[in-house]
Design a binder for these strands. Structure first.
Lengths: 197, 197, 197, 197
DNA sequence: ACGTAAGCGAGACGGTACGTCCCGTCTTGGC
DNA sequence: GCCAAGACGGGACGTACCGTCTCGCTTACGT
């Protein structure tokens, strides 16, 4: 019983198998070959799917990547700061984990590829930012909590602090210059220093 | 009698005309069409040059962009902070100018294109970072001077502050979300606060 | 249920329009420009077809020419000897027609081009030989009939006579020296003389 | 000490070393790679000579091949029929040698290449015909002698006989179908039969 | 239960750009 | 003035993908 009259005409329904095979193939190929060697043709072949099936549902390569991110087919794990009551310690720990993840060699090329996709697709950019911390459960959530609990001064701009931390990581990614461990430990202190209560 | 046995005879010399025409054409087309619609074929046609002349001297599109940046064919103007003795004011002024430049609509697509090039070519990344402040005459220079003069505390990490400021701009560029004027005024204070003497 | 397990699914079918447009374009350009100025790119442009469509179906320029010959897109008319009962007269008439056709200035460049193609593609050579006489309906057929009817001696080698007549034409084509009318009249007599009954 | 006053202006004279190196390189490469893979660039490189040196002296690749033939850099040996007084035996022997030479596998590709060159350069065609027999010392000479001595009838057309013999060889070369030994023995008899006294 | 229409795989199509090869001309500096 | 070396503008090569378009098939709704 369709919810609304004339909702859909007869015919086969979208194949979930095809959808997941495509996302999986795209994720694998992105990790293996990088964003600019990623081709729709290659994805279709790997997913054993016709090209039109991809074009029917996604307008562009980058939209496909955005959905991969949304679907956790890429970057399945999320790094979230703890809340021990010590915001500087928590953020420093989080930052170190992010840095290690991003510099680890296996994922650095992948992240760089996602970054390339992000430049021409805002949805990718949004998803990437979420993965890296711009989400209520993650960095911004921890900072908000810190403001609420008085660990950070009331006028502290959570958005600015978050952008600084993530922006620096992105900048280092782009310029192929990672963070040394000491750097990574010191960086959050430098940024947060002016906002600690 | 040749100076050394293995010395190769000279042959015709590289044409400076061709080189500059190529760099100019690449710069124009990058600004007009963006990095991923930029084609070697198009550059060759615009520069009235054979494709092989480009391939003879540059291994890739991105290497060509890197040389455009080096040659000041792209981004000819450099924004440099003043030194009035008030580091926060100077950096805030500089940051505002950068933000206005980067958000101004004419150059934002260009910068985004350069960013895309930077992701697959470290030389582009280095040149771009220089243009944005990582140079003794620019942001890092001003911050170094502030440390030297005692405006900033001795242990302040100039590199970290610089990465934060520039990284945030890059992040906003990638995610298509610019800085509001108030944001731009407040941001440097948030970052520098912890390092002011 | 598919008839057999390994059967591949069909997909779109080859476009006959494209095929004939390509053959026509190739034939025209061969006649206009000669074999070595013939380019795949030019054929594709004339036929309003993508280059890959040509490469999908023909491995080389010469294979394309071979199919033009097979398809009667080149050399549509065939010159066939009559059978009046007088083999020398019939062959002489046929030879004269071939010589006139081949020397006529419009087709001589075309035939020369086909000859060039024949050198690096045996299929072209075979088709060209057929057009010139190596076919049951043509010269060899007439000679076979003459042997059967006793006009030629039983041991006469039809293949040898045919090769002589056609070979001489080819040789004259290659060396840019045509047959004078008298020459053309006399030649078959010289060759056939030893085989007449 | 110049032989005549004011005869020529100063400057270096054409280098014979360069000329022979070029002819040798062209001959080798023609034999190795065939006519259509033969490039001026390759010849220059093999001969350790600048490209302009080639263009200064030869207008085209095929002219260069023609000079190779003239200079005996290609096809150094000439096959000449003997004169034992038996023209059929002599021509048959000569024909057999030519067939074996032409079919031998090492030289067949070379001859085919020369044939390709002959199609767009009449000088090559002339030289090739000479090598194969159209020269007073060779086939036509032997046939002329036969007419003079009465072995062949007075009205026999030497040119026609020669064209038939050589044309058939060329035809077989083009169509990749050689002569069997029996064929080769029988062929001259078939052709000459009508002209023997 | 059946017709109908959408989804699907396959893959051909007209295109664009790739990066390479060679063309024939030119420029340079040494002999 | 000839030569080697080799850069140049140009054009075609054969390939890789693009995004669109048939093809026949499978599938599953709605009558």
């Amino acid at each position: 019983m369709p919810a609304e009259a004339g909702a859909r005409r007869p015919g086969a329904v979208r194949s979930e198998d095809a959808r997941t095979a495509i996302l999986a193939a795209a994720s694998e190929l992105l990790a293996e070959q990088g964003y600019d060697h990623l081709t729709i043709e290659g994805i279709a072949a790997r997913a054993k799917v016709g090209k039109p099936t991809i074009y029917r549902w996604w307008p562009s390569k980058s939209a496909l990547i955005a959905e991969c991110l949304l679907d956790d087919a890429l970057l399945p794990e999320t790094i979230t700061p703890r809340n021990t009551g010590d915001v500087l310690a928590d953020v420093t720990e989080w930052f170190g984990k992010i840095v290690r993840f991003v510099d680890d060699g296996k994922s650095t090329a992948l992240i760089r590829s996602i970054l390339a996709a992000a430049i021409d697709n805002n949805d990718v950019a949004i998803q990437l930012a979420r993965r890296l911390g711009a989400t209520p459960e993650s960095l911004e959530g921890r900072l908000d909590a810190a403001v609420a609990s008085g660990e950070l001064v009331a006028e502290a701009s959570v958005r600015h602090l978050s952008d600084s931390l993530i922006g620096a990581i992105v900048l280092r990614l782009i310029s192929h210059s990672g963070f040394e461990p000491d750097d990574a430990r010191q960086f959050p202190r430098t940024i947060l220093a002016g906002s600690l209560a």
